[in-house]
């Protein structure tokens, strides 16, 4: 059965912030972002369970990564320049501080960390990784640059007591 789409994403949905928020601008409090994310996650989990919730958040992050690449980033041919641009944009947008621990693009292996992460930094210990949205986002950003699909798994997270979120990335 074909799904009739009602909420298909397009960058237009970000809206004209200058016109729409002439006084408040494009800033908001991080609590609001997290309020929305974790209430949404809560409700989705209630409807579909934790595994499906993680999958939905990964896919949403992946879609966000593709759109971010398409609408925000400038084309780069060289990995270092691409990473440099991404680092600057993630800081500019207040998403997090991206650092590279290892990058062997020929083997398709990267270890990256995101400090002061938008989703999780400052959360209480939960004893499980929580940044599935980031996993999807990073996966899409790597795939858009290399043209190869990447598996991205968070191996350390603020929520597991670590001070930074570390992601292992492998090309498929």
């Amino acid at each position: 059965m074909d799904l009739v789409r009602k909420y298909k994403f397009s960058w237009d949905l970000i809206g004209d912030l200058k016109e729409g928020r002439p006084n408040l601008g494009n800033k908001t409090r991080l609590e609001v972002y997290r309020l929305m994310q974790f209430t949404l996650r809560d409700v989705i989990e209630q409807h579909f369970g934790p595994e499906e919730t993680d999958k939905i958040f990964f896919d949403a992050g992946f879609l966000a990564g593709k759109e971010f690449y398409k609408n925000v980033m400038k084309p780069e041919k060289e990995l270092n320049a691409y990473i440099r641009q991404l680092q600057e944009l993630l800081i500019e947008f207040g998403i997090g501080i991206l650092r590279i621990e290892k990058a062997d693009i020929e083997k398709g292996e990267l270890i990256v960390t995101v400090s002061e992460d938008l989703d999780c930094s400052g959360l209480p210990d939960l004893e499980h990784e929580i940044c599935t949205y980031d996993e999807g986002l990073i996966s899409a950003l790597l795939e858009c640059f290399t043209g190869v699909k990447f598996t991205v798994k968070e191996i350390d997270c603020w929520c597991t007591g670590d001070r930074t979120c570390r992601f292992a990335c492998f090309s498929q």
Partner: peptide, 9 residues
Amino acid sequence: KDLQSSLKH
């Protein structure tokens, strides 16, 4: 781990 990550970076 954060220190290790910074040093690796």
